[in-house]
Amino acid sequence: MTQEYQDGNALAGPLAELFAVDVTAATGRCVSCGDTRRVADLRVYGHALGWVARCPSCEHVMLRLVRAPDAAWIDLQGTLSLRVPLPPA
């Protein structure tokens, strides 16, 4: 049986189109259970109409991404904050 979900590294390609930094290396806090996880460690359901990334602890939706031919929609209302590692300023 096909694996239901992939890990968050599956988001690296589609997110690279929108953001200058590698968002999969960022750490997100789940709005539902408060757990912090690297985006790369989220559970990504990509066999759908878009990418749906869920918290591995409570399965709450932390990120949704839809790619239309001429636009993309991203929803982060399930992510309380995103810590993006950056080189020292």
Binding site: Y45, H47, V52, R54
Partner: peptide, 9 residues
């Protein structure tokens, strides 16, 4: 009959 899911079954 493709299976499309946004979450666990």
């Amino acid at each position: 009959f493709p299976v499309l899911s946004a979450g666990p079954t």
